[in-house]
Computed example of a mutant assay.
Amino acid sequence: METVSAYFTGAIRREIADLRAERATGLSKRDWQRASGPHVTRMLATGRFPELAKFVHDGTEVDAETSFATGLDWVLDAVAAKLAPPPA
């Protein structure tokens, strides 16, 4: 139960942080991404962050609801695997 509760708490905190950032900067998440794009592009061009570059270039954007549901599925699958009896 603690793991599921922590997942929910983290998701709620992330949502609150996003809303606070939007209110403080006046930029939506999409606007912030556009504004920071040139910096991220220069950073990735250095070659110092190959895994991040792969994630940025190959990743697909998903909405918050899908992201939350996918993460929750992973958490519940992990809990179920931990609670399953060991193989005979």
Rank of each mutant, 00 (worst) to 15 (best):
M1N: 02
M1Y: 01
E2N: 05
A6L: 10
T9R: 06
A11N: 06
A11T: 04
A11G: 14
I12A: 14
I12Q: 03
I16F: 13
A17R: 01
L19N: 13
R20I: 15
A21C: 05
A21N: 15
A21M: 08
E22L: 02
E22S: 14
A24I: 07
G26Q: 03
G26H: 09
L27E: 15
S28P: 00
K29E: 12
K29R: 10
R30W: 06
D31M: 14
D31L: 06
D31H: 12
W32S: 15
W32E: 13
Q33R: 13
R34D: 13
A35L: 15
S36Q: 09
P38R: 01
H39L: 15
H39F: 13
H39W: 11
H39D: 09
H39S: 11
V40G: 05
V40A: 09
V40D: 02
T41Y: 05
T41F: 04
M43W: 02
M43V: 07
L44G: 11
L44C: 03
A45H: 04
T46P: 00
G47D: 02
G47C: 03
R48T: 10
R48D: 15
R48A: 15
F49G: 04
P50L: 02
P50C: 06
P50N: 01
E51W: 01
L52F: 12
L52S: 15
A53C: 07
K54T: 10
K54W: 09
F55L: 07
F55T: 09
V56M: 08
V56H: 07
H57R: 08
H57A: 12
G59K: 00
E61Q: 13
E61I: 03
V62W: 07
D63N: 12
D63E: 08
A64D: 12
T66Q: 10
T66A: 14
S67Y: 04
F68D: 08
F68M: 06
F68E: 04
A69I: 09
A69V: 05
T70R: 11
D73P: 00
D73C: 06
W74I: 14
L76C: 09
L76N: 09
L76V: 11
A78N: 15
V79E: 14
V79T: 03
V79G: 03
V79Y: 02
A80I: 02
A80E: 12
K82L: 13
K82C: 04
P85N: 10
P86N: 06
P87W: 13
A88S: 10
